[in-house]
Design a protein around this nucleic acid. Structure first.
Lengths: 133, 133
DNA sequence: TTTTAAATAGTAACAGTTATCAATATTATT
DNA sequence: AATAATATTGATAACTGTTACTATTTAAAA
């Protein structure tokens, strides 16, 4: 029965995801974990990210910017993709459960959930926009 | 001043996007347009899709399923990715402009817009789910 | 027409990700 | 603690979706 074996590499990846708010890509995670485990393979990073996501220990964010981002914060929350610096930042807002109800109106299928990605400027880039205007 | 020349190939791609509700990928579009222009190149399809999107004549949908989808319907509307057949289907619901306002509360940056993708079952797959249960 | 440059077909290159496999490390068993 | 069993790794090749390159073609202007 496929018992899961702990590995230092997987732990390191998870620790990093839990500690950062950067929503890193696989490559960024690879760079970081390599400081502790210089011989870790990029394949190991991808394999463990898929594993953690499948176990519900991490979330995969598809932002349409070419590569997937990962988030160790698995509580329901939303993100903004900054058009200034292309970073993904957290938003603190209540879950928009009601939009599933709105979507279900006049729809003959089944709504199971949603993902929302906001576009805009992160606080840092917004500040620059304001002062340079 | 970079005058735009309308090629038959581009027109064919656009015609197809306007005529279908399938939200096809580049590869699906390639297959379709090849029936009319057998010698069209896949690169031409990608080049024109990027062009059409940049001109606001088509919309690119990032669904996180490995490839981009395209939509010739450029009016503001939402989509559902069916967990049964993996197709993208249209939802008829009013624009959720208010969620931008909700996102802006307690956020120090700027909200410019949003994308929403619903998960669930399309009408056809929902019907099967119901009858087989 | 002739000219001009945008667009094409064909192909190579590229980025992100997955698959393969022998070697290694973790856990269970003795 | 030693051994056995197997999940996981590192290294690398392969794969997929997309973009870049270039000589040739084609649409539009002169």
């Amino acid at each position: 029965m496929a018992t899961i074996k702990y590995s230092r590499q997987r732990q390191s990846i998870k620790d990093y995801l839990m500690s950062t708010k950067e929503h890193p890509t696989a490559d960024m995670i690879y760079s970081h974990v390599r400081e502790e485990y210089p011989s870790i393979s990029l394949g190991t990073v991808y394999r463990n990210l898929n594993f953690l996501v499948s176990q519900g220990e991490a979330i995969r964010l598809t932002c349409g910017d070419g590569s997937e981002h990962y988030d160790g914060n698995t509580t329901k929350h939303y993100h903004l993709l900054c058009s200034g610096c292309n970073r993904v930042v957290d938003l603190t807002m209540d879950p928009l459960d009601h939009i599933d109800t709105l979507a279900a109106v006049n729809f003959d299928g089944i709504i199971e959930g949603h993902t929302v990605l906001f576009r805009g400027k992160c606080p840092e880039c917004a500040k620059q926009t304001r002062t340079s205007a």
